[in-house]
C-alpha cells in the first residue's frame, strides 16, 4: 500500500451540476479508505438528499476496512457561523441571547458572504489541523479531505465572496477572511479537480470555470476529470483512428453504427476543445455500462481514480 509522503492537499471537486462530482468524490474517498487511510467527504448536499442519489448500502459487509475509514458530512454554514459566534462571546448566556435574537438572525441572512466565509474557514481549519499536528488525533482522523463543492456558480461565488470581504468587515470575521486568503494563496494546500462530462454545455462551463478561477482567484486546476466517457476516448490514437475508419466505411449504410460514429466524433471534438483551452492534466473516467448496486458503481469508478490527488 503506497503511503503519501506528506499530508494530502484539500481536494476540491467542482464543476457543472449533474456531471458526477458527488459520485467521484465518494469514489475517491472510498479508494483511500479501502487502502487504510481515513477520508472525509464534505458534501454540499444535505445528507437525506444525498441518500436519494447515492447509497453506500453493503459497505460494512463487503469492505469493513473502507467502512471504518470513510466519513461523509454536510457542513451547514449556518451552524458553523453560530459556532463561531459562540466562540467569540465568552458568556454562554449572552451568546445564546445573540444567537436567538431576530437582529442576529436577520442580519446573517442578508450579510453578504458571511455564511460562505464561515464554511470555508471551517474547511481550512479541518485541513490545517491535520497538517500542523501530525500524529495527533485530528491528523489520524482524516488523511484525505474531499470537498464535494456546489455547482459552478455557487462554487465561484463562495470562493470570491470570502476574498472580497475585507471591504465591509472589521472584527473577528475579518481575521478569518485574511487567514483564508492566505491559505488559498499557496497552491500546495489544495488540489482543484474540476469534473466535466464531454457534452457541449458542460465543456463550455468547465472552460469558463477554469478561466475565472485563474483570472479572478489566481487558482489553477491540478487535473480535469472527464467523467462518463466511452472506451474509444481512452484508446490509443492509432486504435481509435483504426476503429473510426472501420466504422465510417460502414457507418453511412448502418444508422446504428452511424449513431456510434456521431457520438464518438462529438466526444472526441469536445475533448480536444477542452484540451486546447485549459492547460492541465486530464483524466478520463469511463462510464460503467452496468452495475448492480451503487456501491459496485463507486468501487468500479474508484479504480479509475488511482493516484489522485498527488501531494
Amino acid at each position: 500500500m503506497p503511503t503519501p509522503a506528506g499530508p494530502l492537499p484539500l481536494t476540491i471537486l467542482c464543476g457543472k451540476g449533474g456531471v458526477g462530482k458527488t459520485t467521484l468524490s465518494l469514489a475517491l474517498a472510498l479508494r483511500h479508505a479501502d487502502q487504510g487511510r481515513t477520508a472525509l467527504v464534505v458534501t454540499s448536499h444535505p445528507l437525506p438528499e444525498l441518500a436519494v442519489s447515492v447509497s453506500l448500502t453493503g459497505l460494512k459487509e463487503k469492505h469493513p476496512v473502507a467502512a471504518g475509514n470513510l466519513f461523509v458530512i454536510h457542513l451547514n454554514p449556518r451552524e458553523i457561523l453560530d459556532g463561531q459566534v459562540k466562540q467569540q462571546i465568552p458568556s454562554q448566556l449572552l451568546a445564546d441571547a445573540v444567537l436567538s435574537s431576530r437582529i442576529y438572525q436577520s442580519l446573517i441572512e442578508v450579510a453578504p458572504g458571511l455564511k460562505e466565509l464561515a464554511f470555508l474557514s471551517q474547511l481550512q481549519k479541518l485541513t490545517e489541523e491535520r497538517a500542523s499536528a501530525p500524529g495527533s488525533e485530528a491528523a489520524r482522523k482524516f488523511d484525505l479531505l474531499v470537498w464535494d463543492a456546489p455547482a459552478t456558480g455557487h462554487f465561484l461565488q463562495t470562493l470570491k465572496v470570502s476574498r472580497n470581504f475585507d471591504i465591509y468587515l472589521s472584527g473577528p470575521f475579518a481575521l478569518l477572511g485574511k487567514q483564508l486568503t492566505h491559505f488559498f494563496s499557496e497552491p500546495s494546500h489544495y488540489a482543484l479537480l474540476p469534473v466535466t462530462t464531454l457534452e457541449e454545455m458542460a465543456v463550455e462551463e468547465t472552460i469558463e470555470l477554469c478561466q475565472k478561477l485563474g483570472e479572478e482567484l489566481a487558482m489553477r486546476p491540478r487535473a480535469i476529470l472527464c467523467n462518463l466517457t466511452s472506451p474509444l476516448l481512452a484508446a490509443s490514437g492509432a486504435a481509435a483512428a483504426e476503429s473510426a475508419r472501420a466504422m465510417s466505411s460502414e457507418g453511412t449504410t448502418n444508422p446504428d453504427l452511424q449513431f456510434i460514429l456521431d457520438r464518438s466524433a462529438i466526444e472526441r471534438s469536445l475533448f480536444e476543445r477542452l484540451r486546447a483551452s485549459v492547460e492541465t492534466e486530464f483524466r478520463t473516467v469511463e462510464r460503467e455500462p452496468r452495475w448492480e448496486t451503487d456501491l459496485d458503481l463507486l468501487l468500479a469508478v474508484s479504480r479509475r481514480l488511482e493516484g489522485l490527488p498527488d501531494n
Partner: peptide, 25 residues
C-alpha cells in the same frame, strides 16, 4: 436508440469494445 450492430469477427478490438460498450449503454 436500440443499437443493432453486427461486426465482422476480424474487426479491430478497439472497435469491438466500443460497439459493445455503446450497445450496453
Amino acid at each position: 436508440p436500440p443499437l443493432d450492430v453486427r461486426l465482422e469477427p476480424n474487426s479491430p478490438p478497439a472497435l469491438q469494445e466500443t460497439v459493445a460498450w455503446y450497445r450496453n449503454v
